[in-house]
Design a binder for these strands. Structure first.
Lengths: 253, 253
DNA sequence: CGAAAACTTGATTAGCATCAAACCAGGTGG
DNA sequence: CCACCTGGTTTGATGCTAATCAAGTTTTCG
């Protein structure tokens, strides 16, 4: 594959390409070395393609609470999340905020920008976030040159749709306790290392599960007492997966 | 446009093209005369294109309760809903069924089939349904010939995603009464004629709003007493929109 | 007509929202 | 350094909402 950079016949890409001296632009190098490239939007692109697109890609860093974009703004770019967690949320007719779903490593958010639409939701950093900004013009021109990318994009949309449905089905009904347990299960999918996962503020848990922050607090406290979760620091807990699964199973067999 | 069939320069299509004697295949005629074509997937195609694709398109009719497809089945075709209402629903880990959203006239469902995936949900007819079956192979080959179709498809996905988010935000929180009122508002978007709309069974309302069928029944009864809705027949009601909006406004200003 | 399914209505209870108060950690300024 | 403040969190007391259990009624359909 590395040899192929110069005479480019290939589509197959190794999981993490070794050094690639043929790339001229520094950002192209960053892209080539990116740990999520294989899973991200440009996984279908070869390195030569990368060398041509680098120019417009900007890496963005956000602190917890900072918005990546906001609902209603003209959509100028999509974003690949490289690290951290982003939450998508909307305000309903009654003015209550509601978290729609989360996006983590290798997820693509703000795809509506590629259709000339305004952003459909607020995207806000939950943790420290690293993201790559992909201007919509770039993607349009790339799709023309590389039709496989269009298929890749469609798969992205379908994944987002699956995620949305999953949140509705798993977190949308059942008792408060069940929803809390299922949320922990979901958060553990994004878990960085081991059984340690990021725990949202009580208010955010409420906004994800459709309950008050007091109820969320009581549930978290109860699960700590029961040894299902264990405090690591203010925003992180370690989860005893067997107990979590047992708790889920016992509440509705 | 009719003249253009023979020398085809056009992309502009009248809302409902008059007789088109130049088309040979009967199904192509059906497509050309289709009332939703302008809004449906092949709106971007000219009539000549239609004449070439007709062969694989089959019109399907369903009675209330019949499935269009089922979750987990290999996705062999997407469907454009021409008339009636289809509900998408899934069973969660605890075995409860949950309605994800509805699809009505001109909506496209089962798009995941075009990505070689199995269907992600059950699609079940709520009312009498007419749908056009679009085999995934057809769409693939068409996309190659007509790149604009890919963009059209992406817009479809985004619309589905918007719908999903909307359901979560609007029907996912608030009191049972508020959710019921918002559901009526949503159902009225699909309303056929005037203020008359299809009313789901109490069990289905429960499955859409995350409540028991008894609560749904009580709410429907109460709204009838209050004159917000009025029985037309077992499955249809007329809605007094001003009262509905007033009820929505008063319960949460 | 009779049985099954869908719907309605009532009584009771459990679960969660609401209101209220106290607690804690972190940061600021005197 | 300590007093103070602020925002997030915990915990308690109380009441309302909707689930549950239980009949009874209407509709549908063989």
């Amino acid at each position: 594959m590395i040899g192929a950079i110069m005479n480019a016949p290939a589509r197959v890409i190794p999981l993490r390409p070794p050094d690639t001296p043929a790339l001229f632009n520094p950002q192209a190098r960053v892209c080539a070395d990116c740990g999520v490239r294989r899973f991200a939007l440009f996984g279908a692109l070869d390195l030569q393609g990368l060398d041509q697109i680098h120019v417009d890609i900007v890496e963005t860093r956000l602190r917890p609470g900072q918005p990546l974009y906001e609902a209603g703004q003209p959509g100028v770019a999509a974003f690949t999340v490289r690290a951290g967690l982003v939450r998508l949320e909307r305000t309903n007719a009654q003015g209550e905020r509601r978290v729609l779903r989360l996006a983590g490593r290798s997820d693509l958010v703000g795809m509506e920008s590629m259709l000339g639409q305004t952003y459909a939701a607020d995207a806000i950093a939950c943790t420290e976030v690293q993201a790559c900004r992909l201007p919509h013009g770039l993607i349009e021109s790339l799709t023309r040159r590389e039709p496989a990318l269009a298929l890749d994009l469609m798969k992205r949309w379908q994944r987002a749709l699956d995620d949305a449905d999953e949140w509705l089905v798993e977190l949308g009904s059942g008792s408060a306790r069940q929803r809390m347990l299922r949320l922990l299960l979901k958060l553990s999918e994004y878990g960085e290392e081991g059984a340690t996962l990021w725990l949202p503020s009580r208010e955010q848990i409420g906004s994800m599960l459709g309950m008050t922050l007091e109820t969320a607090s009581r549930l978290v406290s109860a699960l700590k007492r029961e040894g299902v979760i264990e405090t690591v620091d203010k925003r992180h807990v370690r989860v005893a997966m067997p107990r979590l699964l047992a708790a889920l199973g016992s509440s509705a067999g």
